[in-house]
Design a protein around this nucleic acid. Structure first.
Length: 554
DNA sequence: AAATCTAGCGCG
DNA sequence: AAAGCGCGCTAGATTT
């Protein structure tokens, strides 16, 4: 049973089984969806989850299954995905409404036709089952993303303020540096004899360092770390704290964490951080976020992520996901067997491929990213000898990329084509009268694109595993919470996802079912592995902890 | 003054 | 000789 939801003007058209074509005022949508969901649990075919679903969730209506036409279109027809009416919504500063940007020219018939086209495209593809899985997982992910944005990540404003105060000193007046930062700046100025230096200005800082006799040509942390000079320690500390202040300081707190109404009685200052997730916002299929830098929450500040009283976080991350995914997609039994334990890198050492765990990690990441120099480059031949199938997969993807040939993830997401300028550069370099510089630059560009496609197949397939994990977990949590109510501000919804970070999930849950949630997280990981790779014997262990603050998960 | 670019750093 | 992937965000620098 499927129902297509088409908001138009001030109305909503529902079309499909079991309701037939039905036009109703959009205020009536949540109630009607709730009724149909309860009675028939249809698959909801949505033009764009990010546009339609927030209205439902805000009205207290959540659905189990969906198909997101916009996300599917981007996978099935990448060249035309951003055409006209199907454009991804431009970023907006206010909350989207049901009617905003929904391309009102798209009628119910348009959506039904698009849906038919997509079904045919899937059926005609070389691997329909894989594509169906990808689209189902992405669509479920989009539901989870909307729900997570709505529910928010529990955030304790008082703890955040305390962390900042401990590290920086009390909150300063606008336009002035916090005490600790000002003291460090003074120390830096003193030690390079530059009394008016603004250490936030990279050019000024670079000139000052050079004048003081330091051999640097950038102000990057890694370059500074190599130097032995009294200014280095205070400067690195300054940069660390200045970064924290700029990215996640008091201004961020005020802008992004909304206080939770009526719950400040126990001396805490509970709130919620509501990032907007952009499903498949990264070319590889990973999620992006917009606003608040949710995917870059520094470890330092995770202490402020505090569960509600009587609730816990179940934090889980998939250990060494990308190498495991590579072993599975390559059908590399040897690498899968190295991955049998919980530490794949130690497995490489135990198989005698490399001598230390650190070398194993450098070599593995080098293979995934295309390192050719240094330690990684030296270790690569051993890796290729030990795991010819796994390394063969990424090498082939790299060769394809260098030729400009698209590659695909395991479930079938295509990589983008290189830009026109890239093709043009390759064409010119191939001509007889090409200049040496042109040829060199074209080769460079080809290798760069090869590293991109090399990583694309692995990062993209890992994102697919993670989508399946998230989607299956969402279903399990819905079952776990069904028919029960819980104490606390999120009591109505029970255990729920609050954060997703590439290979890591956080569930906010009543403490008494935290162990059940932990088990659900593990079980979902098992399901994800089977959905993608069937019976191929590669394990995807997840490290799970039950904590009161996110900072305790590491 | 506003818009756009760049360097740098946080995360995976 | 070059030299490891993908992002978002900020302040300062540069351009309009």
């Amino acid at each position: 049973m499927e129902v297509v939801v088409t908001p138009r003007g001030e109305q909503v058209v529902l079309d499909g089984e079991p309701c037939g074509r039905e036009t109703l005022p959009f205020e009536a949508l949540p109630g009607r969806v709730r009724d149909l969901e309860t009675e028939h649990a249809p698959r909801w075919v949505l033009s764009d989850t990010a546009r339609v679903y927030p209205q439902l969730v805000t009205a207290g209506v959540r659905i189990a299954r969906s198909h997101d036409l916009r996300l599917a279109r981007a996978v099935l027809d990448p060249g035309h995905a951003s055409d006209g009416a199907w454009d991804a919504p431009a970023h907006e500063t206010r909350e989207p409404t049901l009617l905003d940007g929904l391309a009102p020219e798209l009628t119910a018939d348009d959506l039904l036709a698009e849906h038919r086209r997509q079904r045919a495209a899937v059926a005609d593809s070389p691997a329909p089952g894989r594509l169906r899985l990808l689209l189902a997982a992405e669509s479920a992910g989009a539901l989870a993303a909307t729900e997570m944005s709505h529910d928010g990540l529990p955030w304790d404003r008082a703890v955040h303020d305390q962390v900042l105060t401990d590290l920086l000193g009390p909150r300063p007046h606008p336009g002035t540096r916090p005490r600790v930062l000002e003291a460090l700046a003074a120390q830096v100025r003193d030690r390079v004899s530059a009394p008016s230096l603004n250490p936030d200005s990279a050019p000024e800082l670079l000139r000052a360092l050079q004048s003081a006799g330091l051999e640097v040509d950038s102000t990057r942390k890694h370059e500074l770390q190599r130097l032995d000079h009294p200014v280095i320690a205070p400067l690195l500390e300054y940069k660390r704290l200045a970064r924290l202040l700029a990215a996640n300081g008091w201004t961020w707190l005020d802008e992004w964490v909304r206080p939770l109404p009526g719950t400040a009685a126990d001396g805490r200052a509970p709130g919620r951080f509501h990032p907007e997730y952009v499903v498949s916002g990264v070319v590889t299929g990973r999620w992006a976020t917009s606003g608040g830098g949710a995917l870059q929450l520094p470890k330092q500040i995770r202490r402020a992520v505090v569960a509600d009283a009587g609730w816990r976080f179940v934090v889980a991350d998939a250990a060494q996901l990308e190498p495991r995914v590579l072993a599975a997609m390559a059908g590399d039994e040897a690498m899968a067997s190295a991955a049998r334990g919980s530490d794949l890198y130690q497995g490489l050492v135990d198989q005698g491929v490399v001598d230390t765990r650190a070398h194993a990690k450098v070599a593995m990441l080098g293979a995934l990213y295309g390192s050719t120099s240094g330690e990684a480059g030296r270790l690569m031949p051993r890796l290729m000898r030990a795991y010819p199938r796994a390394t063969g997969v990424v090498e082939e993807a790299a060769r394809d990329g260098e030729r400009g040939t698209p590659v695909r993830t395991w479930l079938g997401r295509p990589s983008p084509a290189p830009p026109p300028a890239w093709h043009e550069a390759q064409r010119r370099a191939g001509q007889e009268d090409a200049e040496a510089g042109e040829v060199r630059r074209a080769r460079q560009a080809a290798r760069d694109w090869g590293r991109f496609t090399r990583n694309f197949v692995v990062q993209g397939t890992a994102a697919e595993w993670a989508s399946c994990w998230l989607a299956d977990l969402r279903g399990r949590l819905r079952s776990l919470g069904a028919g029960r109510t819980w104490s606390g501000p999120d009591g109505r919804i029970g255990p729920h996802l609050v954060f997703f970070l590439h290979d890591e999930v956080v569930v906010h849950t009543p403490a008494d079912v935290a162990d059940e949630v932990a088990e659900a997280v593990r079980a979902a990981a098992g399901t994800a592995g089977q959905l993608l790779f069937g019976t191929f014997p590669v394990e995807f262990p997840v490290e799970v902890s039950v904590v009161e603050t996110y900072a305790d998960a590491d």
